[in-house]
Design a protein around this nucleic acid. Structure first.
Length: 720
DNA sequence: ATCGTCATAATTTTT
DNA sequence: TTATGACGAT
């Protein structure tokens, strides 16, 4: 057996983890320490050295992308497809189990999946039917409550009445929501996990079967597991399974949505004879960047403890830019990017990271003005777009007449004269008789509860769906969707609209047909291709933008940057209240997560990290002045290089002394009467100056452009 | 049924 | 500031 291909590319610690005897292993893998590599090599080791059948391996990740990558890299290392191995997200794997055991789970065979949008709409309907005031009972809060309880494995009937009327009402909503889901045959994301846990827990035979099958569990991003995912792992591992968990407590940034960093500490208590391996050698960032990250995260309590190191040298210092305002910050970043490109760098190697999405706007505007191509991550994904959801709504209705969410969505889309009044009648009938909208609509027509006009329209819609169902019965998946788009009138609806939006909607619909054509149906399960495609659409929302291939700067939130790396990283908006975010400052325990988020941001950088903050920032229409983020102060001074074009800030002078005259050193040779050169306005003479630090401004009389006040910090004036 | 106006709220996001 | 949703007017 030649194991050199598996072990040779690894360092000692990676090798230790990879080749450990089967058993429970916890790998604490620091940022950039090769955690995916260890997972992949471990799988190869199990198969090639321990003679484990691929059939006995279950590998779990959090994103579809990570799952794909793991499968791909495993197969390319093995040189053969790892047939029979299960690799997927928790949700994907639970979905697969529920499809196979829908009867045990008490689900209809063709159950549908609600994404969070669907779920929220559904909760809104429930709130209405319970006659609750939406301003007093926001759907979001109910959604949060329901998902939170489900992720803890708690059903509505398990929640004790603690006398709190708010709690009581929320439980009532939870209960009504759950009943409706069951009646309609739909499950939400959390339900996929909870239901799976329940059927395994309550069905000895089933549990034993899977425990025997999956003797080897591998988990990526273990620090992100929530209560139910952890419970699921324990259940599946049983007494005889081996669990190989890889994670980094310092990169746990999803506590706010239920991830429990404690799971990583708990692991060695719940999984017998756990061997712990630390991966601390970092292959990504230069020494200075790593030292900054280490120093920062050292401020957190209760860490498992890790210190990243590298043998690739210190590299450049970290840059820190104190911007005057957010525009100045964006301009500075744009300048540095152009400099990077001028020096031969690629734009794809550059990332602009920020705490909240709202910050992207000013960068976008600035980059457009500077003609810097960029790509913003986040936002609506392909299968979440309204027009795509409309089309899928029709298909779901074909598959499941009881899918009220879809019924309501498409009954008047495109508009066919079925107004709110008619829909409300159907809703009421459905609620009163506990039947689906489809059944209610049929009944309303029969009993002539609708006006003749409405009855005709609704009847027409029902027939349309029937006809559609028949028409597409024997077609290929992509033909089914193509038919649907034509028969439903969706395509025409968007075609008739000349607006730019409608144009792109039409293109998206066409893209949907292509997606269906490219979709490979796994014939293993009993689902029809259409049903499988619908599940795929819900479980894997697809990419945001498709145009990733142009060389452009990457812009994203810190959260979405996790797992990525870039040569040049800008970490922007480092201000108290923004990062760390105000909401985390106020809530106890959240500050450490903010710090981990900052740690994640720092460790994205390979060669150069540029930090920036703005002294004043416009937020929600108001000008805000804030202090530099505490995280800046937690970085070692000697790793930082402060960038302040031409001027020096004197911290010792109180702000109240910032009168109209500044001390000469603020202006570094640019004083009244001096001739200066400006890149845009050309030559001029300094007439006046005021302010200090990065607020310092000068009035220059330009020969061609006339007299202007300029902020010295970014005017980039050359004394002549 | 569609458009315009007003109030309101506003981290982070995958499945 | 802005986006979103609810409501009222054509």
């Amino acid at each position: 057996m030649d194991v050199s291909a598996i072990l040779d590319p690894l360092n000692d610690e990676q090798r230790e983890a990879t080749s450990a005897p089967p058993g429970n292993i916890l790998v604490l893998a620091g940022a950039g320490s090769g955690k995916t590599r260890v997972l992949v090599h471990r799988i190869a080791w199990l198969i090639q050295v321990e003679n484990v059948s691929a059939y006995g391996i279950l590998a779990v990740t959090f994103t579809n992308k990570a799952a794909q990558e793991m499968r791909q890299r495993t197969e390319s290392l093995l040189g053969i497809p790892a047939a029979g191995m299960w690799v997927g997200t928790f949700h994907g794997i639970c979905h697969r189990l529920l499809r196979q055991h829908w009867q045990e789970a008490g689900l209809p065979q063709s159950f549908q999946i609600l994404d969070s949008q669907d779920q929220q709409r559904m909760i809104k309907r429930i709130l209405k039917s319970l006659e609750l005031d939406e301003s007093k009972w926001p759907a979001k809060q109910a959604l949060w409550f329901i998902n939170g309880r489900k992720e803890e494995g708690v059903r509505a009937e398990h929640i004790p009445d603690n006398g709190d009327p708010v709690n009581r009402q929320l439980v009532r909503i939870y209960s009504a929501y759950q009943q409706t889901c069951m009646r309609l045959g739909v499950v939400d994301f959390a339900e996929l996990l909870l239901r799976t846990l329940e059927i395994l827990r309550d069905n000895e035979q089933l549990l034993t079967h899977y425990q025997n099958r999956f003797r080897h569990l591998l988990v990526d991003e273990f620090q992100d597991t929530n209560t139910i995912q952890y419970a699921l792992l324990r259940l599946l591992a049983g007494k005889h399974g081996s669990t190989f968990a890889v994670g980094d407590d310092d990169q746990s940034i999803y506590g706010w949505r239920g991830a429990r960093i404690e799971n990583i500490q708990q692991f060695s208590k719940d999984f017998a004879n756990t061997q712990i391996v630390r991966l601390e050698q970092n292959y990504r960032s230069s020494g200075n960047i790593l030292n900054a990250a280490n120093a920062l995260i050292d401020n957190n309590q209760g860490r498992l403890g890790k210190n990243l190191w590298t043998n690739s040298g210190n590299g450049a210092l970290l840059d820190l830019y104190a911007a005057y305002n957010e525009q100045d910050e964006a301009r500075f970043v744009a300048d540095r990017i152009q400099q990077w490109v001028n020096e031969g760098g690629k734009r794809t190697e550059v990332a602009v990271l920020y705490r909240s999405n709202a910050q992207s706007r000013i960068f976008e505007e600035t980059f457009i003005a500077a003609t810097i191509p960029y790509r913003v991550y986040g936002g609506l994904r392909f299968f979440e777009r309204a027009e795509i959801k409309d089309a899928l709504g029709y298909l779901r209705l074909c598959v499941n007449r009881n899918d009220d969410a879809s019924f309501e969505r498409v009954v008047n889309q495109p508009p066919r004269g079925i107004g709110e009044r008619t829909v409300e009648l159907i809703r009421q009938h459905a609620n009163a008789h506990s039947v689906s909208y489809w059944q209610a609509a049929t009944a309303c027509i029969e009993t002539q509860q609708l006006s003749s006009r409405a009855a005709t329209m609704v009847g027409g819609f029902l027939e349309l769906i029937e006809k559609l169902t028949k028409n597409i019965l024997d077609l290929q998946l992509y033909e089914q969707i193509d038919q649907l788009l034509h028969i439903s009138g969706l395509l025409d609806h968007h075609r008739n609209d000349k607006s730019e939006k409608a144009q792109s909607r039409k293109e998206n619909l066409e893209e949907l047909v292509s997606a269906a054509r490219a979709y490979e149906h796994n014939t293993e399960d009993e689902l029809s291709p259409l049903e499988a495609f619908l599940a795929h659409a819900a479980l894997e929302a697809g990419d945001g933008q498709a145009d990733a291939w142009e060389d452009c700067v990457q812009m994203m939130t810190l959260h979405s940057a996790k797992g990525l790396e870039f040569k040049l990283v800008f970490l922007c908006g480092l201000e108290e209240g923004l990062f760390p975010h105000q909401m985390s400052v106020e809530e106890p325990g959240r500050m450490e997560e903010e710090r981990r988020l900052c740690y994640v941001g720092i460790t994205r950088a390979e060669q150069q990290l540029v930090l920036s903050y703005a002294e004043s920032r416009r937020l929600y229409g108001k000008e805000n002045y804030s202090m530099p983020s505490r995280f800046i102060g937690e970085l070692p001074r000697d790793l930082l290089q402060e960038i302040r074009p031409q001027i020096m800030v004197k911290q010792s002078v109180p702000a109240t002394f910032q009168a109209s005259h500044a001390s000469p050193e603020d202006f570094n040779g640019i004083d009244i009467g001096r001739r200066v050169l400006h890149t845009k306005f050309g030559e001029g003479v300094v007439l006046n100056c005021e302010g200090r630090g990065s607020h310092a401004r000068v009035q220059v009389n330009f020969e061609s452009a006339g007299s202007k006040w300029l902020v010295l910090a970014y005017a980039n004036l050359q004394p002549l």
